[in-house]
Design a protein around this nucleic acid. Structure first.
Lengths: 137, 137
DNA sequence: GTATTTGCAAAGTGTTTGCAGAATA
DNA sequence: TATTCTGCAAACACTTTGCAAATAC
């Protein structure tokens, strides 16, 4: 039986470029931004391909995904230890990881007492970072 | 001086209809669903108007807004005491309020220690409710 | 009587899909 | 060589905007 195999993945220069570009962004970026960045650099990749690569990375759990207030998806390469939450600057997009252990435990507890199965949680913190506060008022 | 007045708001049957329809939905609904519902009932309202009414209600803090996984906005009329979090069923959309006091306090603390200003938070819990679990596997 | 609201049609956004040609293994 | 991947163009879904006619105050 073929099963739901781990979907074969080839090594292509485009995917490598996307991953590299993503790694060079300390903060969350949208697919569009990433694409623009790749085009600006010499290594142009189709927008479609960027979207596909990102979806793949998301499925593989190698990126964290959040949504900005317009609903646009923002991606960030994930470190080794999985699942992480961030505090994002609404002005410049800068992000910093935050310790959300409390929330994790809370979510687990709700999951247990609610009668709901497969409970997942999304936590997003946004604010205005110190630098942006200092700059434009 | 004109200032940023509290934007005059007229009472129109359409707005009343939107608010009424919203009130009759125990769970989160999208603008599109709400519009369909209004059309099905005799009181037809333009889709544009539904969107405008919802934005108005959101600005007035009279609805809670979340996003489903596709990015579509879902609205739910808010009770008296403001700001509330929910556990949503991914299959049927059913929701139940959850006590997120822990998270509120955590968010406040992060806000204080982070150096970020105007920190806001979004918390979304999703799962599969008991009824849906029992029904379709 | 005047300013706001409505609602249609059209534009705009981010994202996905169809498909022929190119590239990988 | 057999599949997978790329990338353009077109399709999609939700949402917003322009504007003339209708409506509330």
């Amino acid at each position: 039986m073929t099963g739901t195999g781990p979907s074969p993945t080839r090594n292509t220069p485009q995917r490598a470029a996307v991953l590299r570009a993503l790694g060079s962004c300390p903060d969350f970026v949208s697919a569009q931004m990433l694409h623009a960045r790749l085009v600006t650099a010499d290594c142009a990749v189709g927008l479609t391909t960027v979207y596909r690569a990102l979806r793949q990375l998301q499925a593989a759990g190698r990126v964290d995904v959040v949504r900005d207030e317009t609903g646009e998806r923002l991606y960030r390469r994930r470190g080794a230890q999985g699942h992480q939450h961030y505090l994002l600057c609404r002005r410049c997009g800068r992000s910093r990881p935050v310790d959300a252990g409390v929330v994790e435990r809370w979510a687990e507890q709700v999951a247990e007492t609610s009668g709901y199965a497969e409970v997942e949680h999304t936590v997003e913190l946004t604010g205005v970072c110190g630098r942006c506060r200092a700059t434009a008022r």
